[in-house]
């Protein structure tokens, strides 16, 4: 699709409006209840284990660059870094996109700063390894084995290299918590990691962790957006079953090239 059409614009507007409304409502203090995700509860346990063992923790934001997915991953990892700063754990964060280094450094330094431990922050532990997928995976696998990490947090965009990292961490007995929007990698992560957050839980994670009004509001807005899509799906099935495939709803959502 090169440009939007009226149906697409309307739907996007409705979902965006729902998200923004709920964010501002939540900021005004009307904060709704949200449940916790078991995989995210495990983060504190994993940090605690690294503290007990006195070994570093691996924070892995995936293969992405400065994009929405990797920034979301960084938001989750910044929470982990804050816990690490609190307990005095060393963190190692290899990245696959050089332009992401300053962003990651800033975020992790901020986490240490908030815990009043900025002097413990080691900029050299946030490192660029390679932007080649498997060279990067080999580098991370090497780090896991050399540093004998106690825990590994794999959050972000992963492809086939996910299993190389997760299996290496598994082999040295590290606790692993993972989350990715790459649906094809979830089976591999489930097989090799201790806790995995699935699907859009990845985007919900920061709200669960920080309980920030903006993020919680956004989460509720997202649910409204999903409900709208679900409603359209149900209506689509019902109307198409009754009226046949050539109906007004199908026509609304059919792109021009399909009609030709």
């Amino acid at each position: 699709m090169e440009h939007s059409d009226p149906v697409n614009s309307t739907l996007t507007f409705i979902i965006c409006a729902a998200i923004l409304t709920m964010i501002f409502r939540s900021r005004r203090g009307k904060q709704p209840f949200i449940r916790r995700i078991p995989g995210l509860n495990a983060i504190d346990d994993a940090v605690g284990r690294a503290t007990e063992m006195g070994r570093p923790m691996l924070l892995q934001p995936g293969l992405g660059g400065i994009d929405v997915i990797t920034l979301q991953a960084l938001a989750i990892l910044a929470y982990v870094a804050r816990a690490a700063a609190r307990f005095g754990n060393r963190i190692i964060m290899p990245v696959a996109d050089a332009s992401f280094i300053p962003v990651a450094e800033e975020a992790i330094r901020e986490s240490y700063n908030l815990e009043g431990r900025v002097e413990s922050f080691r900029a050299e532990d946030i490192m660029f390894l390679s932007d080649r997928q498997f060279a990067f995976a080999a580098g991370v696998a090497g780090l896991i084995n050399r540093e004998k990490v106690a825990t590994a947090f794999l959050f972000g965009l992963f492809f086939a290299e996910s299993l190389i990292m997760a299996e290496n961490a598994n082999q040295i007995g590290a606790i692993q918590v993972a989350g990715t929007p790459s649906t094809t990698q979830i089976p591999f992560l489930i097989a090799a990691c201790d806790y995995v957050i699935i699907g859009d839980e990845f985007y919900a994670a920061t709200a669960f962790l920080t309980r920030e009004p903006t993020l919680v509001g956004s989460l509720v807005g997202q649910d409204i957006g999903k409900a709208v899509i679900l409603l359209i799906c149900i209506l689509g099935v019902l109307i198409t079953t009754i009226m046949g495939p050539d109906n007004f709803l199908m026509n609304w959502f059919t792109p021009l090239w399909w009609k030709r």
């Binding site: 699709m1 090169e2 492809f159 790459s182 792109p255 090239w257 399909w258 030709r260």
Partner: peptide, 16 residues
């Protein structure tokens, strides 16, 4: 990789 999503969105979707 997931680059196919960009091809679907920005190339295939123009003229089908």
């Amino acid at each position: 990789s997931q680059t196919f999503e960009s091809w679907v969105a920005f190339v295939q979707g123009i003229k089908g």
